[in-house]
């Protein structure tokens, strides 16, 4: 594969808001930037809006969804107000997606070699013969053993890890600038997860594609990403370098999330710190801090709007108390 190192950002999103059927926005005021060859992690729990973001940047949201933004650039393509035919030019060619469940992205009745070649044929990037040859190259690129044999097989003849490699080969076929991976390893075993994360890392280094990696797994994010944004109830609450954000969280939600997960440094069989309650619709409607109702440090002033503020260079948090609070106490419970 020829490595074309792009100079424009793979993704630039400003003030993205998404709502369904006129309801309360599930994502509000989100800014994201993925540089070429960079892996940006998006982390959060169910319902925080992380998957909606992944769908929005590929124009895959259902018609009932309303997407507002100041900017939505995929590579050098401005996609604000784009219609379906504009998206068809971008999807699969400039940006592509890897899902949690590889079977949902594969046609069970089509040989995998033909499925990979189809991406190139649809976009008119190769003739039939060249597309087939390129499909074999792609299978080699994603380290599928015996590519000639595998190309002739159907998805059901492969293991989950092998299928996810095929999906990644399809996603990389047109040499896209952006790869959106939504929980790409959640359905896989840990040893296979390690292989797939390794593969995604190698892909971005070799092709210069930027990656938006959506995950609920702090370990996956820490292992793989260059930067991470933490989402809570549709908003970004913290952003920075994973080791910094996870080791030295500046938002009480991030700190509580990190503390609630057993790790190598957690005292075995001791109670884990818990986050009381759950996210309510009202939390998405408040103009103040959305985490305040569950936050151990909330005070009256938390009801007023909060901006993402810099706590250190390249590390921001949406908590006006982040500078005065000592959140290390939460993580020390573990040690």
């Amino acid at each position: 594969m020829t490595a074309t190192i792009a100079t424009t950002d793979a993704l630039a999103v400003e003030d993205l808001t998404i709502s369904y059927g006129g309801g309360t926005p599930v994502v509000s005021g989100v800014d994201l930037r993925v540089g070429p060859g960079e892996i940006l992690g998006v982390i959060g729990e169910s319902g925080c809006g992380k998957s909606s973001i992944g769908f929005a940047v590929l124009g895959l949201l259902p018609a009932s969804a309303r997407v507002d933004a100041d900017r939505l650039d995929v590579g050098e393509h401005g996609m604000l107000g784009a219609d379906e035919s504009d998206w068809n030019q971008v999807r699969g060619r400039v940006a592509s997606m890897v899902f949690q469940e590889p079977m949902s992205a594969l046609n069970p009745c089509m040989r995998v070699g033909a499925q990979i070649a189809e991406v190139l044929l649809v976009h008119g990037l190769a003739d039939k013969k060249a597309a087939h040859a390129r499909a074999l190259d792609l299978l080699r690129l994603v380290q599928v053993p015996e590519p000639e044999l595998r190309a002739k097989q159907f998805p059901h003849q492969m293991s989950g890890g092998m299928r996810q490699r095929i999906v990644i080969a399809m996603a990389m076929a047109a040499n896209p600038q952006l790869l959106v991976a939504d929980e790409p390893t959640t359905a896989l075993d840990v040893t296979v997860q390690a292989q797939i994360l390794d593969l995604i890392d190698r892909m971005r280094r070799e092709t210069g594609a930027g990656v938006l990696l959506i995950s609920h797994d702090l370990g996956v994010i820490a292992q793989t990403c260059d930067r991470v944004v933490v989402m809570y109830a549709g908003e970004i609450v913290e952003e920075g370098v994973p080791t910094e954000v996870l080791a030295n969280p500046s938002h009480p939600y991030t700190a509580a999330l990190v503390a609630s997960i057993p790790t190598t440094s957690t005292a075995a069989r001791e109670d884990l710190p818990m986050i009381p309650g759950g996210v309510r619709d009202a939390d998405r409607e408040t103009s103040g801090c959305r985490f305040a109702a569950r936050c151990a440090f909330a005070v009256e002033a938390c009801a007023s709007p909060q901006a993402l503020v810099e706590v250190e260079p390249a590390h921001t948090a949406r908590c006006w108390r982040s500078v005065e609070l000592d959140l290390t106490a939460l993580s020390e419970v573990k040690a």
Partner: peptide, 23 residues
């Protein structure tokens, strides 16, 4: 040993891992 090293640990960040080949 391979299983343990394959588990991404938020406390450890990037580190040496044994990546098993195949299934």
């Amino acid at each position: 040993a391979a299983l343990l090293s394959a588990v991404p640990d938020p406390d450890a960040g990037r580190r040496e891992r044994i990546i098993l080949q195949g299934d």
